[in-house]
């Protein structure tokens, strides 16, 4: 599905990605983990074409993403910080994104799921952080793309919305989609992800299932396994 080869990216003097190789197969939930500044967002933004890599290739479905913008039709992306033009109404934003991407499949269902009807006529600048995140989720999931990328999807959500989000993610997986998720909440990662990709200093340190990670570090739970990797590498 997604294959990344020898990816390098520097921001000024700060080398964020140093020769990252990653192969993501079709179907399933992949959690991208790593300490702050390990390059998770840079990796995701490179796949989306928002960050231009210094070196290396990224291909989706075997096709290089360079000099092409249409491949993004196959990706739904949930940005980390939900910042929208503040003088637009929620309704107008939905309409605009639909206009830019083509018709959506299940927006009404999602509005109902996250109880967004009371906010639909409000301006985005007036919404609370959690509600903005719900709009963000709505905009991401209302299209039916084979690859879904979620950058910190749980930020600001209340427990009910969190449960709904988990169900939504599981439902997407059941449809055979590939989901790439970053999160710092280990219980969330443990509950939903099939495989873990652990980034450290701009490279993939570990890729495999959660039981495999626990076995490798001989720790009883995911949180300690991650902490174990970090202390061993003096991060």
């Amino acid at each position: 599905m997604v294959s990344v080869e020898n990816l390098h990216k520097k921001f000024g003097k700060n080398e964020v990605l140093t020769g990252l190789d990653l192969e993501i197969s079709e179907g399933g939930i992949f959690a991208v983990l790593g300490p702050n500044g390990s390059g998770k967002t840079t990796l995701i933004k490179s796949i989306l074409g928002m960050v231009i890599p210094d070196k290396g290739t990224i291909s989706i479905h075997g096709k290089s993403i360079k000099k092409d913008s249409n491949y993004r039709k196959q990706i739904d992306y949930l940005p980390q910080i939900a910042n929208f033009p503040s003088n637009l109404k929620v309704k107008e934003l939905i309409k605009m994104i639909k206009d830019l991407r083509g018709n959506s499949t299940n927006e009404a269902e999602l509005i109902e799921m996250f109880k967004l009807e009371p906010f639909i006529d409000k301006k985005l600048g007036q919404l609370s952080g959690g509600t903005k995140q719900k709009v963000n989720i709505l905009l991401t999931f209302m299209f039916d793309s084979p690859l879904v990328i979620l950058d910190e999807p749980t930020t600001g959500l209340d427990p009910i919305a969190l449960i709904r989000l988990k169900n939504l993610i599981k439902a997407e997986k059941a449809k055979g989609k590939t989901l790439l998720i970053t999160s710092h909440i280990m219980s969330f990662v443990e509950e939903i992800s099939d495989e873990i990709v652990f980034l450290l200093e701009g490279k993939i340190y570990f890729k495999g299932t959660i039981p495999a990670l626990k076995a490798q570090t001989s720790q009883p739970d995911l949180e300690h396994a991650i902490a174990n990797i970090l202390t061993e590498n003096h991060v």
Binding site: L48, M50, N70, Y71, R72, I75, P79, N83, L100
Partner: peptide, 9 residues
């Protein structure tokens, strides 16, 4: 940034 993640040049 919102637009950049969409299939637009």
């Amino acid at each position: 940034e919102l637009l950049l993640a969409q299939p637009l040049k």
